[in-house]
């Protein structure tokens, strides 16, 4: 299953499901990453991590490690 971590810069993906649990997952969801939403991968930080994505009209930065929790189509 592809996750947000595998997405490439410039890609637009749709969220299929969120795995994991706890505060980080809740935070990711609170920020708008829920089932069915579109995410555009805008860029990666200079040192390779974290990534900046556009979701629901704003910019969010999220670590690749945490991005693993987001399964995409």
């Amino acid at each position: 299953m592809r996750t947000l971590q595998d997405a490439q810069i410039g890609e637009t993906v749709t969220v299929a499901k969120l795995t994991g649990d706890g505060a980080v997952k809740r935070r990711i969801m609170d920020m708008g990453i829920t089932k069915g939403v579109e995410i555009y991968i805008r860029k990666v930080a200079p040192l390779g991590d974290p990534v900046e994505v556009t979701v629901r009209g704003y910019e969010l930065s999220i670590r690749k490690e945490d991005a693993k929790m987001v399964e995409i189509n």
């Binding site: 505060a23 670590r63 490690e65």
Partner: peptide
Amino acid sequence: PSPFVMELP
């Protein structure tokens, strides 16, 4: 490690 989910205003 500390999580890092942050808005970039």
